[in-house]
Amino acid sequence: MKVLALLALLLAAPGTALAQPSLVAELAETQVEITTGFTGASILVFGATALPISAQPGSPGDEVLIVAAGPVQPMVVRRKVRVLGFWLNGPSATFPDVPGYYAIAGTRPPWEMLAEPDRQERRLGLDTLPLRARGGQASPAFRAALLDLKQQEGLWAEQTAPIQVSGGQLFNARLPLPATVATGDYTVQVLLIRQARVMARQELIFRVQRVGTAAQINALAVQKPALYGLACIAIAAFAGWLGSVIFRRG
């Protein structure tokens, strides 16, 4: 409803468009809830621009770029090595600041919309992520493997969900969140680009959190591990006993 109301408002006032900001964007939800039935979700980013959106190369129209990033966490990348015919985990590199989630979507790929130095500085695109291994002397293969595996897990995505434009000024994009997303605060940046320059920028936030039973189980396991362990023992013993009672009668 919120979506429709905002879009209706924007559409109904074309005359006052110039008085309005050149970019308005919003998220359909600001909460993603991980329940016991969670299989992944998606976040709908939508909004409108003051001038018509045009994705034709060289045209004077506005363009939109959406970047979402999740909480940063340290990651270890290990290379598999063969020792005496067995494959085992060999040398490793630790990357201290790895965004758990990163997705970018635009009316065109970011490297076509912006000049290279500008794009690098604003960190738009997977190749611009500041992934430096701790110690700094890890081989570039580790960084490449991190990029590759994160994309395979669906946690990092570039241009997988293109921006849909309707009526020239309304845009929306759906950013996929796989079932393995980490909990925490996520930021979504929406950029308005005109002739290779960023004209307007809006930052939105959504939160991924566990709710219900999944949240309670995880909270107990983290905060009171001993109590959780005892509860697991009691539950497993009870389930085993209950099963034998049911099947003896049956």
């Binding site: 966490q73 340290p74 990651m75 270890v76 990348v77 290990r78 290379r79 598999k80 015919g85 067995f86 494959w87 985990n89 630790t94 201290p96 293969a141 580790f142 493997a145 991190l146 590759d148 595996l149 994160k150």
Partner: peptide, 13 residues
């Protein structure tokens, strides 16, 4: 002993 599909693995530190 079989050659793994991925030459690298990642996990949270």
């Amino acid at each position: 002993v079989q050659t793994p599909e991925q030459a690298f693995v990642i996990e949270p530190a």
